[in-house]
Nucleic acid binder design. Structure first.
Length: 226
DNA sequence: TATTGATCATAT
DNA sequence: ATATGATCAATA
C-alpha cells in the first residue's frame, strides 16, 4: 500500500480519488498509510482531516494556502450524524486581528478558502469508535451567488466590528453563515488587536467558522437527503 | 440539546 | 509565533 500519494493532476482526478474512499471505515483507510485510528478524538481532533489529506495527496500542509495549490481546491472533512446532518461547525481560517480592514472581501482569506471546496462527510457520532466511522460521498462545491452575498455581508459586518475595536464584543451569536469564535491553543493565548480608541491590546485569537446549518444546506442541496 | 466558547496536536 | 487540521465540553 502506498504511504506516499502524489498530488492529483486535475480536479476530476481529485474527486475520483475521494469517491473511491466513500464507504470505507477510517480504520481501514488509516492502515493504508501506516496509521492507527485513535480510540477517540479528544487528543486527536485533526485526525480525520489529516488522514484525508494524506490519502488524497494534499500538499498545502500548514501553510496559508489551499490544500491543493495547483488546483485551487480546499479540502474539508465534515462530521455528520447518522442522518448525514453536519454535527459541528467548520473552521475556515484564522483572523489577523491587528491588520483587519486592509483587504476587500474578494481578496480575503475567507474567499480564498471557500471559492472551491471538496467536502468529505465522515460519520462523527461520538459513541462510534473512530476506526469504524465511515467516509461518505464527497462533494465538490463553489458558493452560489446568493451564498456568496450572505458570506460577504457576514464577513463585512464582523470585520467592521473588529476594525472598530469591538473585538471583545464579537461573539459566536453574530453572523448568518459565518461566525467568529476563539481559535487558540487555550484561553491564555494572546494576539495583538486594537480597542475603539486605536490603543493596542491583547486579545484571544479568533477564527471564522461556517455554521453547521449552512454546511447542512450545502449538502442537502446537492444530495437530496431525507 | 443546540450552540458558543475552549481546547488539543502538528507543521513551518 | 502562527498557521494548519478540527472536536470537545460547558453553557444557555
Amino acid at each position: 500500500m502506498p504511504v506516499f500519494v502524489a498530488p492529483p493532476a486535475s480536479e476530476a482526478e481529485l474527486v475520483s480519488r475521494a469517491e473511491q474512499l466513500a464507504g470505507e471505515p477510517l480504520g481501514v483507510l488509516a492502515a493504508r498509510v501506516g496509521w492507527e485510528a485513535p480510540a477517540d478524538l479528544r487528543r486527536h481532533k485533526g485526525f480525520t482531516g489529516q488522514l484525508m489529506e494524506r490519502l488524497l495527496g494534499a500538499t498545502g500542509g500548514s501553510r496559508a494556502v489551499a490544500d491543493f495549490p495547483e488546483l485551487g481546491v480546499e479540502l474539508k472533512t465534515l462530521p455528520v450524524d447518522a442522518r448525514g446532518v453536519p454535527s459541528e461547525s467548520t473552521f475556515v481560517t484564522s483572523i489577523p486581528l491587528g491588520e483587519i480592514g486592509d483587504v476587500e472581501f474578494e481578496q480575503s482569506r475567507v474567499v480564498r478558502k471557500l471559492s472551491r471546496v471538496l467536502w468529505v462527510p465522515v460519520e462523527g457520532t461520538r459513541s462510534l469508535p473512530v476506526a469504524e466511522r465511515r467516509v461518505g460521498t464527497p462533494l465538490i462545491w463553489s458558493p452560489s451567488a446568493e451564498e456568496l452575498s450572505v458570506l460577504r455581508s457576514d464577513w463585512e459586518s464582523l470585520c467592521l466590528l473588529i476594525a472598530q475595536g469591538q473585538v471583545e464584543s464579537v461573539t459566536g451569536h453574530l453572523g448568518r453563515y459565518l461566525q467568529v469564535r476563539p481559535k487558540a491553543r487555550d484561553g491564555s493565548a494572546r494576539r495583538v488587536a486594537y480597542d475603539e480608541d486605536g490603543a493596542r491590546l491583547l486579545a484571544n485569537p479568533r477564527g471564522f467558522y461556517l455554521r453547521a446549518r449552512f454546511t447542512q444546506q450545502i449538502l442537502a442541496r446537492h444530495f437530496r437527503l431525507g
